[in-house]
């Protein structure tokens, strides 16, 4: 699980182009959206694409992402359970 979380942090930084952030700057328990992260609905779409590409998980609509992307940890938990690759 911890390994997946670390992996995800790196992928999030890359996919969302968070040039000024390092993996250790991201708290896996903190909210990914809202607050000070400055992430928005387009970032959520990018994460959905990333989950499909890297883990073979296909979401049917963007609203499903709301629960999954609460934090890096919830994301990791969801991926662990549903990944097909």
């Amino acid at each position: 699980m911890d390994q997946l979380i670390e992996e995800l942090k790196k992928e999030i930084i890359e996919v969302l182009n968070l040039e000024d952030k390092k993996p250790e700057d991201i708290d896996e328990n903190a909210p990914l959206f809202g607050g000070e992260t400055g992430l928005d609905s387009i970032d959520a779409l990018e994460l959905i694409v990333m989950m499909e590409k890297n883990y073979g998980i296909k979401l049917q609509n963007a609203a499903e992402g709301k629960e999954i992307f609460k934090s890096v940890r919830t994301m990791a938990e969801y991926i662990k359970e549903h990944r097909t690759k």
Binding site: I42, L45, E46, V49, E52, K53
Partner: peptide, 10 residues
Amino acid sequence: EECLPPTAFM
């Protein structure tokens, strides 16, 4: 047509 980057389209 799979796994397309929304930011690029936008």
